[in-house]
Design a protein around this nucleic acid. Structure first.
Length: 594
RNA sequence: GGCCCCAUAGUUCAACGGAUAGAACGGAAGUUUCCUAAACUUUAAAUCCAGGUUCGAUUCCUGGUGAGGCUACCA
């Protein structure tokens, strides 16, 4: 099926036969022929001119002739400078469409039998609600998991909830001191409530520091000696000691947060196969660190704190246990990693975590290696870029965070507003139109975020970032809905797809569409190899745009020639299916009508 | 200070070392007795600077400039 592999094989044979040299597969570059030239695939012949000792044009001529004589699907070729543009016969493309039109999961590979890939994403803290940064994380994690599955991998999606630590104690303490027993309501869901007290703590803490400085303490002293922070630290120690009241409060407040997160996750349309809690993994982490001390992998300082020395690896020393014996982020991650390995014996452990933690993961891998964990090499930090706002980085303390729930609500509201203006809800029940606008609003958001290369930082301007026209989720949804509309009309008129003849002469738009459909499996493969949903997103956009041009230029069910009509229907149907399939990989629903 | 990333139209994003650097939004101008105009068509507009490697550099290397991130007994 993959014509390019055939081209490459025959190019190797051509060079061997013509010039008597064997070249490596990797030395051969094929690409889609650019639109302004005639052809389907292009072979770059510059690298072979040293072997042929001829001009690029002559070399291309030689190879072109060889290929045409040996591959019967080739119709013709032309040469522009050192570029050999090869055209296949129309029957090849029509036949290709015919072959894939019956394939159910076109583009996806059958699942293989190897060990699963565990992918961690989301990883929230239970002291504040989810924000825009988490949205990028969640969308990437979910999408990459789907892309891995589409490539035949077994995938386990896991969440790691950071449900313990000093930051949670801060919320707990503030609620105890200032909360008056406040509980979550319809209006203020649990994660928001707990977040409110986290902010309240920070405010009170800052005020306290200010007062202490006025009373003559240095800033450093004030920061360390403030009664509030001491109380929070005391609370953490009590928590680790299993103090009943502290644990009860902790459980209560965390349960509020989980109920709040569930709503956010559900609206966003993501889920997990398993959830880990750091409260359940940190002890294992401590145990492993203690073992490491015994084995002299780590050092204990005078005050009792435990450190790992990574200066030989070009890094610094890193704290693994505080002097008071409590664990830190790294301690927990060591335990979590071990537990996860024990649970799944995975082929790979992927962590979807922002690039601000590149250093952390470098250290984590080295620490695990020092502990003798062979599988540390299977850890892959999928490091994605920050989401920036026009005013700079999001800072929760400065109130510049974009809340996940608010953002989604806003998107859906805008979709509804614009949709109603355009009369998109006509003929739909209230329930149907609510669903439609939710699908459209979320598509706009998800596509906007996923179309950007994960590795890169991206800009998000709430005012003007989200659009419903052009290179957007709704544009693609609209294209899909148009295709479904064609089939509703076709059904009404009893038009069906018959066995269109192979000799159908196809026009350039039709051929271009088939060629794009041909690209789909390669796109999924590459998206998997590079962990980039953006490649899928950009692909669907190309496909949708091409279809809209085709739709604009040529009649489909109004075409009078029955064979052509049937062929165009088949082409439209497959395009719709690929759009739906690819959008699913991004976690975006497509409506039947809009 | 040290380490890491990034720099492309006015703006937000594309481009395995390959052809004349693609899109979208915004700007200008058009298309609806025709399968959904959230569409389609035309148009103006960009590779931070200086070197190097290469047949060929937005892409690789070196040096600048500029913006982020990390460098916590925070996570």
């Amino acid at each position: 099926m993959m014509m390019e592999d055939l081209l490459i094989d025959y190019t190797i044979k051509a060079i061997e036969s013509l010039y008597g040299q064997v070249v490596l597969k990797s030395a051969i570059a094929t690409q889609k022929t650019r639109k302004e030239f005639e052809g389907d695939f292009t072979l770059v012949v510059f690298p072979f001119t040293k072997i042929s000792r001829k001009s690029p044009e002559q070399t291309a001529e030689d190879i072109g002739n060889y290929l045409k004589n040996n591959i019967n699907q080739i119709n013709s070729f032309n040469i522009v400078k050192g570029f050999l543009n090869i055209s296949f016969k129309n029957t090849y493309w029509v036949d290709f469409l015919k072959r894939i039109s019956t394939k159910e999961n076109y583009g996806c590979l059958k699942s293989n039998l190897s060990a699963p890939i565990v992918i961690e994403y989301s990883s929230p803290n239970t002291n504040k609600p989810l924000h825009l940064g988490h949205i990028r994380n969640n969308l990437l994690g979910w999408s990459i998991a789907e892309i891995l599955k589409a490539n035949g991998n077994k995938v386990v999606k896991v969440n790691l909830v950071n449900d313990r630590g000093i930051h949670i104690c801060k919320s707990m303490l503030a609620w105890q001191l200032l909360g008056n027993g406040e509980e979550p309501t319809e209006k203020l869901k649990g994660d928001k409530l707990v977040g409110k007290y986290y902010v309240a703590f920070d405010k009170a803490y800052k005020e306290e520091i200010k007062t202490l400085i006025e009373n003559g303490l240095t800033e450093e002293e004030a920061t360390k000696k403030s009664p509030l922070i001491l109380k929070a630290q005391e609370m953490l120690q009590k928590w680790e000691a299993g103090d009943a009241d502290t644990i009860a409060l902790w459980k209560k407040m965390n349960s509020w947060v989980y109920a709040g997160f569930d709503i956010t996750y559900k609206t966003l349309g993501i889920n997990f196969d398993n959830t880990y809690y750091e409260s359940e993994t940190y002890l294992l982490g401590k145990k492993l660190v203690t073992e490491g001390v015994k084995n002299k992998a780590f050092d204990t300082k005078e005050d009792g704190s435990v450190w790992v020395n990574l200066t030989n690896d070009g890094l610094d020393e890193k704290l693994l246990l505080r002097s008071d014996g409590t664990s830190v982020y790294m301690t927990q991650d060591i335990g979590t990693a071990q537990l996860r390995y024990d649970d799944y014996k995975p082929e790979k452990l992927i962590y979807v975590v922002g690039n601000e933690q590149n250093y952390h993961f470098e250290v984590l891998k080295l620490v695990l290696k020092k502990l003798g964990k062979e599988w540390a090499k299977n850890i892959f930090h999928l490091s994605y870029g920050m989401v920036e706002l026009p005013e700079g980085k999001m800072k929760s303390r400065e109130g510049t965070v974009v809340d996940a729930d608010d953002l989604m609500d806003e998107m859906i509201r805008t979709a509804k507003e614009k949709g109603n203006e355009l009369g998109k809800a006509e003929g739909l029940t209230t329930e149907e139109s609510e669903l439609l606008f939710k699908q459209i609003g979320l598509a706009a958001l998800k596509y906007f975020i996923l179309k950007v290369d994960p590795k890169k930082n991206m800009m998000f301007n709430p005012e003007e970032s989200i659009d419903f026209n052009g290179n957007t989720g709704p544009f693609i949804q609209y294209t899909y809905a148009r295709i479904q509309s064609i089939f509703r009309k076709a059904k009404e008129n009893h038009i069906v797809i018959n066995n269109y003849p192979l000799e159908t002469s196809i026009n350039s738009k039709e051929k271009e569409l088939i060629k794009l459909l041909y690209e789909y499996p390669k796109t999924i493969k590459e998206a998997c190899d590079t962990f980039s949903p953006a490649l899928v997103a950009n692909y669907i956009y190309e496909l949708a745009k091409e279809f809209n041009q085709f739709y604009h230029d040529y009649p489909i069910i109004k075409e009078e020639d029955k064979n052509i009509c049937s062929f165009r229907l088949a082409l439209s149907e497959k395009t719709g299916k690929v759009i739906k399939s690819a959008m699913h990989l991004l976690g975006i629903d497509v409506p039947e009508q809009m």
